[in-house]
Amino acid sequence: MLNAILFWSISSIFFYKEGKRLWKLKAKKDMIIFTIFMCFAVTIITLHLFGVQFPYLIHVLDFITKPISEPLRQWLNSFHHT
């Protein structure tokens, strides 16, 4: 919980600073996209900090590339001396 509070505090400072910069630039589209991305990043990291276990990227990438990466890895490992 403490980690999450610390993270929210840092994120809100960042949000305020960047929001202020974009407001001055009158970049409305940038402001909307920044808000969407920031909300997404904060939500997903908060879930991670609350112990929600996301799949490891290596497993996801391995799943996507399995037909190629699996035989390739086996072939490479056959030349690797341990």
Partner: peptide, 17 residues
């Protein structure tokens, strides 16, 4: 977007994750 800085903060958070 007008500037690359706009997405730098959320991208930094996502890279951390």
């Amino acid at each position: 977007l007008k500037n690359h800085k706009t997405l730098s903060i959320p991208l930094a958070l996502l890279l951390f994750l």
